[in-house]
Design a protein around this nucleic acid. Structure first.
Length: 491
DNA sequence: TTTTGAGTTGTTCGA
DNA sequence: GTCGAACAACTCAAA
């Protein structure tokens, strides 16, 4: 009796076995051949950033173990994905390739290319929806264009059919009799070695059975639902508290699906409702809404990571200042909250969302450096770097994006610190040079009397920098720059 | 086609 | 110290 032809399951930003429609559909047909393709040289597609490569390594390791246990080991190959998959299909006599859609323009182009190659070879190509709650094609304005304002977008989403309930992981998978060869994960060099700068990442992410991979994602989700979700509305803005979900990387790599999150948050809320406790799910789901909003926008506007969405920003008088950019990147601006955030990012590959807004505003408005410089830095240093979220959020802060902040909304980094990190606990943690300053001065060391500084062991300009720009002056400069581009898109 | 209401996350100033 | 208003105009979405 001949073995049925295997179906290739192409894993990308869906590194999970539960709620994975491509995998489930393939498994229902017979043997499956899971594969991940690393393509560092794809045309028009960005190579995965440094911190994300670290996460990707561990996530692939976890997926690979899980799939092996289920009976169908993961094959690793490198190269242009469409060509690699076409070749693998020929090699193995596969009936076709199944995958879950990735909505980034370059990735979507690879999917189209692959579908054509498969069709020519008489094989099946099937794309599933698993990474977004709502398809970009389904949520559009009456003109058929993508929404540019969040509130009507989210209203339209909430009025659409509810996202599907997640499906469980398959209990067993069948592998083809002959499993093709592949690369060894360790040979991909995704982990840093010379030097090994990932110590802070390991410390931040690998404890307590959490960490990259489906199991870690599930544990982190459970912990979040159990604890922080109820106070999410207030605490999510407090970098000194553990008030956010920290699920961003898991979501980016698809270790859990937004559908799982959606329904888990709803269920948790319903349970609290019954117990008469405050919910919190709505505020959280809204954040998932922003993820959808950004993904839909990038899908339709491929230039989003590179060019301002609002045309008048093409003539914004950005400065070029390598020293200032460097000071920002290293957390040496002299503004404690900004520096704490940049150092948290450098150490752990992650930064609290409130602080992301503050550091981004500082780069763009206080330093007048192009948002693209910040976007690139985040891309390389974040473990949750996501093309759509990153590009849309940077443009939002800069004022050039969809539903952007008004130009006069310029964060005062000192006030933001005092408001959202009132005891300075966050600053003390990431800028230990300032740890011994009294609360009153922890966000404004430059205003502290000499005696207070010396008692706290702070030598301004030596152990901690003086502010590289003065807030009031920087604010006026930014307002003037924004005034200069006011008006229509004409150059 | 025209009109209308509205738009994530702030800061500063003056009463 | 607290509070409300000003900061601008633009563009989006839908009726």
């Amino acid at each position: 009796m001949t073995e049925p032809a295997p179906t290739i399951v192409w894993f990308r930003q869906d590194l999970r076995v539960a709620d994975n429609p491509a995998l489930a559909a393939a498994a229902a047909l017979g043997p499956v051949l899971p594969i991940y393709v690393l393509d560092d040289a794809a045309a028009g597609e960005r190579a995965v950033g440094g911190a994300s490569r670290w996460w990707l390594h561990h996530s692939l390791d976890a997926l690979s173990r899980r799939l092996a246990k289920l009976g169908a080991p993961l094959v690793l190959r490198r190269g242009g994905a469409a060509a690699v998959l076409e070749r693998l299909a020929a090699e193995t006599g596969a009936r076709g390739v199944f995958w879950n859609r990735v909505y980034e323009p370059a990735a979507a182009a690879v999917e189209r290319d692959l579908a054509q190659r498969l069709m020519r070879a008489g094989r099946e190509a099937r794309a599933f929806s698993a990474s977004l709650l709502f398809e970009p094609e389904d949520i559009v304005t009456k003109d058929g264009r993508p929404y540019q304002i969040f509130t009507p977008f989210w209203r339209a989403c909430l009025a659409a059919p509810e996202p599907a309930r997640p499906s469980p992981a398959p209990r067993k998978l069948a592998a083809p009799r002959a499993v093709p060869t592949g690369d060894r994960l360790d040979d991909w060099g995704l982990l840093p070695t010379k030097p090994d700068w990932a110590g802070g990442l390991r410390e931040a992410w690998l404890g307590g059975g959490m960490g990259p991979g489906e199991a870690g994602a599930a544990r982190r989700l459970a912990a979040f639902l159990d604890d922080a979700l109820a106070r999410y509305g207030g605490d999510r803005d407090r970098p000194d508290r553990d008030g956010t979900s920290r699920l961003s990387s898991h979501l980016h790599f698809g270790e859990l699906s937004p559908h799982q999150l959606w329904h888990a948050a709803r269920a948790a809320e319903a349970a609290r409702d019954d117990a008469g406790l405050p919910g919190g799910a709505e505020a959280y789901l809204r954040q998932l809404g922003w993820r959808e909003f950004s993904a839909h926008l990038l899908h339709r506007v491929p230039s989003l990571p590179d060019a301002p969405l609002r045309a008048n920003f093409a003539r914004f008088p950005w400065r070029r200042d390598k020293k200032a950019l460097r000071a920002w990147q290293r957390g040496l601006t002299g503004y404690p909250l900004v520096d704490a955030g940049m150092r948290e990012l450098w150490a752990t590959g992650w930064m609290h969302n409130r602080v992301r807004m503050v550091v981004a505003s500082f780069l763009v408005k206080h330093l007048l450096l192009p948002w693209q410089d910040g976007e690139r830095w985040f891309w390389d240093t974040l473990v949750d770097a996501d093309l759509a979220n990153n590009a849309a959020s940077w443009q939002w802060v800069a004022g050039s994006g969809a539903d952007a902040a008004p130009y006069f909304r310029i964060f005062n980094p000192t006030l933001q610190g005092e408001k959202f990190d009132p005891d300075g606990a966050y600053v003390r943690r990431w800028v230990p040079d300032l740890a011994r300053l009294p609360d009153r001065f922890v966000h404004r060391p430059a205003e502290a009397p000499e005696s207070v500084l010396s008692d706290a062991g702070v030598a301004l300009g030596k152990s901690y920098p003086r502010p590289i720009v003065e807030h009031a002056a920087a604010r006026s400069r930014a307002l003037a720059a924004f005034a200069a581009i006011k008006g229509s898109a004409q150059a």
